[in-house]
């Protein structure tokens, strides 16, 4: 588990959180599981980075939050993407594609 832990680039976490919420609202633990799932276990987000990031994104207006019931009937705080968040996701994804393409091209070069 921890061996496959990769250091998250600054900004990557934001992108992953936004992406994980694309399909619907989740609570903090849900977000962390969802990220693990969509990165095939490559990224495990620890609460120490998750919560500051969630709150930061919410204050930026990209997420909104509300209190609801979890699948196990626990009271939990849920996050969902706002309109601005969706735009931001598109924007950041595009940026990332560019960087990734450039990086892989660079690494393939001899």
């Amino acid at each position: 588990m921890s061996s496959s832990q990769t250091n998250l680039l600054q900004g990557t976490l934001d992108l992953l959180i936004l992406k994980s919420l694309k399909t619907g609202e989740l609570h903090g633990l849900g977000v962390s599981h969802r990220i693990e799932q969509i990165t095939r276990g490559a990224f495990q987000v620890k609460p120490g980075s998750l919560f500051p990031a969630l709150h930061r994104l919410e204050e930026a207006g990209w997420l909104s939050s509300f209190w609801g019931e979890s699948e196990n009937n626990r009271r939990a705080r849920f996050y969902r993407l706002t309109k601005g968040g969706e735009r931001q996701l598109g924007h950041e994804a595009e940026e990332w594609q560019k960087i990734a393409a450039a990086m892989s091209h660079a690494l393939k070069a001899t």
Binding site: L29, F51, A60, S70, R74, R75, A76, R77, G84
Partner: peptide, 30 residues
């Protein structure tokens, strides 16, 4: 949105902190 957060953080500090406490507690429980 920033302005709104600023107002909330400054004026309803205790509420915001209690909210955070509860969120982390619920995370740990789950």
């Amino acid at each position: 949105s920033r302005l709104e957060s600023l107002m909330r953080n400054l004026l309803r500090k205790h509420e915001v902190d209690a909210d955070l406490e509860e969120e982390l507690e619920s995370y740990a429980t789950m």
